[in-house]
Simulated assay, not measured.
Amino acid sequence: MNTKLILSAAAVALLSACASSGPMTPMMPFSQMALPDAVKVPDGHKVAMETVGAGEITYECRVKAGTGTVDQMEWFFVGPAAGLKDRSGKMVGSYYGPPATWQSADGSKLTGMQVAVAPASAGNIPHQLVKANPAMGAGAMTGVSYIQRTATRGGVAPSQVCAASNAGQRITVQYQADYIFWTPA
C-alpha cells in the first residue's frame, strides 16, 4: 500500500476521532464573581481543589426548636451523604455528617464552622461558606482554609406535611453542589 495513502487515512481517522469527542475547551479557573458577597472567600486565598458533590440529605420531622410543643413541627436537617468527584468525573472523596466532614480518598479529612449562607435559586439549598478546621491526616485536605458550596441543585426540606402524626419520620432528598476548597495563597 502507498505510504501517502496510509498517512492520509491515519490523519483522517485522527481528525474524525477529535471531532467526535466534541470541542476541546480548557478548564477555566473558578471565579467567585457571580457569588453573593456573604459567601466569597476573603482575599489571600487560592483554589486548591474543585469537586462536585452528589448524594442525599436526610431530614426528620421534629418539634420545632424552642417551642416544646407538637403543635409546631418542622423538617430538621439530619445530615448529608455524598460522593465528591473532581471536574473530570473521578471519585476523589466523600462528604457526610454530622458533623459536616469532607474526606479525601487519600484518608485526610476536615470539619468546619459555617461562616455564612446566601440564597440560591428556588428549590435549591443555599450557597455556603465554611471556615475549615485543621485537617486530620496528611493529604489533599491538608492546609484547606475555606470550603464553598456553590451551584446547588435540590436538597431542600421535603414538601410533605410534618405534623405530630408523622413525628420521627425521616425522608432523604437528592442534591448536588460544587464544593470548592481554598488554601492560603
Rank of each mutant, 00 (worst) to 15 (best):
A132R: 03
Q169F: 00
V117N: 13
F181A: 09
L7G: 00
S16D: 01
Y146L: 06
V156S: 03
N166C: 03
D71E: 13
A81E: 02
W75M: 08
M136C: 00
A65H: 03
R87T: 14
M73S: 03
Y59W: 12
E50V: 14
V78Y: 01
Q114V: 13
V173C: 12
T142D: 10
Y95Q: 02
T152L: 11
T142I: 01
P26M: 14
W182S: 05
A19N: 07
T58K: 13
M91S: 05
A157S: 14
Y59F: 15
L110G: 11
M49P: 00
V115N: 00
K85R: 12
Y59L: 02
A10M: 14
A54M: 10
W182M: 06
A163E: 10
Q72D: 13
E56R: 08
V156D: 07
G83D: 12
G53Y: 01
R149L: 07
S108V: 03
P42W: 11
T3H: 11
A34G: 08
H127F: 15
V39S: 10
K109Y: 14
T51I: 04
G55R: 03
S165H: 04
P80A: 11
V130W: 09
P158I: 05
H127W: 13
G53E: 01
S21I: 04
G83R: 07
G53V: 09
L110I: 08
Q160G: 03
G112T: 01
G107D: 10
G139C: 10
Q72T: 09
V78M: 14
A151V: 01
S121G: 12
R170F: 00
P119S: 12
T69E: 04
D71A: 11
E60G: 00
Y59V: 03
M27Q: 12
D106G: 04
F77Y: 15
K64M: 09
N133L: 09
P29N: 10
P23A: 11
A132H: 04
G154V: 04
M24R: 08
I57A: 08
G44K: 08
G139F: 12
V130A: 05
R149M: 09
S31D: 13
T111C: 04
I180D: 09
A48Q: 14
A122M: 10
P23H: 06
R62V: 13
T67F: 06
G83M: 06
M1F: 11
F76Y: 12
K85T: 15
G107P: 05
L110A: 09
A122W: 01
T150Y: 01
R153M: 11
A105I: 13
S31W: 04
Y179C: 05
A54P: 00
K64I: 00
M91C: 00
A100D: 13
P26V: 06
M27A: 12
T183E: 13
E74M: 13
Y175T: 06
I57M: 15
F30V: 14
C18I: 12
S21N: 05
M33A: 14
V130L: 11
F30Y: 15
T51L: 15
T172G: 06
S108E: 02
A54W: 00
N2G: 09
A81S: 15
S8I: 07
W75V: 04
T101K: 07
R170V: 05
A10T: 11
V78D: 06
P23E: 11
A54H: 04
V12P: 02
A81V: 04
Q160F: 00
A185V: 06
S94D: 10
I125D: 08
A13H: 01
G97C: 02
I6A: 13
V144S: 02
P184Y: 03
M27T: 12
